[in-house]
Amino acid sequence: MGLIQKSSSNQELRHYRGNIPVGNLYTAGIAGDRFFVDLRDKGRLLGTRCPSCERTFVPARHFCEECFTRLEEYVPVPSSGTVHSLTAAHVDLDGKPLDPPHVLAFITFEGCAGGLVHRLGGAPGQSFRIGDRVEMVLKDRKKRTGGINDIEHFRPAKGSRR
């Protein structure tokens, strides 16, 4: 059998079915808890500043993995940023077409290390490019639960031009 041939007979051999019957419940952690509570209650993005390398990390994290310092200075950062890179997903996890395609970007924030992966949205047919200025669009306060989906998406920043 060549490398690229698929065996479709696996299920005809003698086999035994089973699973690993567990699910997971993850805490957001020391810094993650602060970040998501702030996003939910105050609608802002929180970072942490490293006193050693003077970088500010977004989202907030508990330690600087380079300097290995504990980060205890929490600072709000502007909720508009720049599209660092983007992609458009035309199919979902099961291979079904997505129309319109989902536009996903890595968004960075001025003066900050790190950034957020999130959806890009706006008017129908809106197109995006690397380098675009975008701003955060939040869900209504009542619908926010303290998770990354409290952010609806990022849209073109007001007054931004290409």
């Binding site: 993850y26 805490t27 957001a28 952690g29 020391i30 810094a31 993650g32 808890d33 508990h62 330690f63 380079e66 300097c67 290995f68 504990r70």
Partner: peptide, 24 residues
């Protein structure tokens, strides 16, 4: 624990380094 797994790792590791006055 409230801490994430990597936050737990950090706290133990930070203490180990501090205990011998070393840095990363």
């Amino acid at each position: 624990a409230k801490e994430t797994p990597k936050e737990l790792s950090f706290e133990a590791t930070r203490m180990a380094l501090d205990s011998c006055e070393m840095t990363r």
